[in-house]
């Protein structure tokens, strides 16, 4: 069995260093297997977060050779193992210890999003083609890799006025739900900070669920915000007749 060197961050919020560990690898191994092997045999206190080991829970995000990824889905035969493999925690969030980061900011920011609010007296009939888009957004496993790479959150440390791609996707999943009647555009414009996003698509590239975050979620939401707040003609009609979404919802409720 060939051996590979892993250069793993060891430390906490006060700092730390990269330490080398040698791992015997076998066919099909992923990065998380190597981390577990180090834990079991060399460094039992090496902290890393994981659950399902099958790309379904989104717990084991880290930066492998600088690339943000789920460790459980990164096979060693897809990376260069002739040199030491560098494994660091996600940069955007404070380190708890080693590879485990404190992601609770995401759970707090999520509370800004108004919950699902169905139209009253709906008959709950929804056609598949009308929920395909929402289902795409609901594939999100909350690995927060998109939040990690988003430069607004990563480099500018802007975490109070911007909710980041994950939560924009969640907002989109509610806004585009065929039966939802809540309006989240004001939140998006203000504390959601959708204007900060300048659609560089880093989030889309890193998404392990291949959600088209930028094209399907963020850009349509940006358009809605622009229509709502910056289009003078539409804005005039809306003041006269109420928003399109509310009219549609009232119409479908009346059809019962």
């Amino acid at each position: 069995m060939p051996s590979v060197t892993f250069r793993v961050f060891r430390g906490d919020k006060n700092g730390g260093e990269l330490k080398d560990y040698t791992v015997q690898v076998e066919e099909g191994m992923v990065v998380l297997d190597a981390i577990h092997q180090i834990q079991a045999e060399q460094a039992p206190d090496l902290a890393c977060r994981w659950n399902c080991k099958a790309g379904k829970c989104g717990s084991c995000g880290a930066e492998v050779n600088g690339k943000p990824t789920l460790m459980c889905m990164t096979r060693l035969d897809t990376i260069d193992t002739s040199k030491p493999v560098v494994v660091r925690p996600m940069k955007t969030f404070p380190v708890i210890r080693d590879l485990a980061t404190d992601v609770k900011w995401n759970y707090e920011a999520n509370k800004k999003i108004k919950p699902f609010t169905p139209a009253p007296n709906t008959d709950w009939i929804m056609m598949q083609e009308d929920v395909d888009r929402v289902q795409e957004f609901r594939k999100c496993i909350e690995c927060f890799l998109c939040q990690n790479v988003c430069h607004v959150l990563r480099e500018h440390e802007e975490k109070t006025g911007f909710i980041g791609p994950r939560l924009l996707v969640r907002t989109a999943s509610l806004e585009m739900h065929p039966l939802d009647v809540e309006n989240r555009l004001e939140m998006l414009k203000n504390e959601g900070g959708i204007g900060y996003c300048n659609i560089t698509k880093c989030c889309t590239e890193v998404c392990p669920e291949h959600i088209h975050i930028t094209d399907n979620a963020i850009i349509p939401l940006k358009e809605r915000v622009v229509d709502e707040y910056y289009d003078p003609i539409l804005s005039f009609f809306r003041r006269l007749f109420g928003s399109k979404k509310r009219l549609e919802a009232a119409g479908s409720a009346a059809d019962d």
Binding site: D12, Q39, P44, D45, L46, A47, C48, I96, R97, A100
Partner: peptide, 8 residues
Amino acid sequence: GGRAYNPG
């Protein structure tokens, strides 16, 4: 190691 996030 310490008690913080210690899998062992």
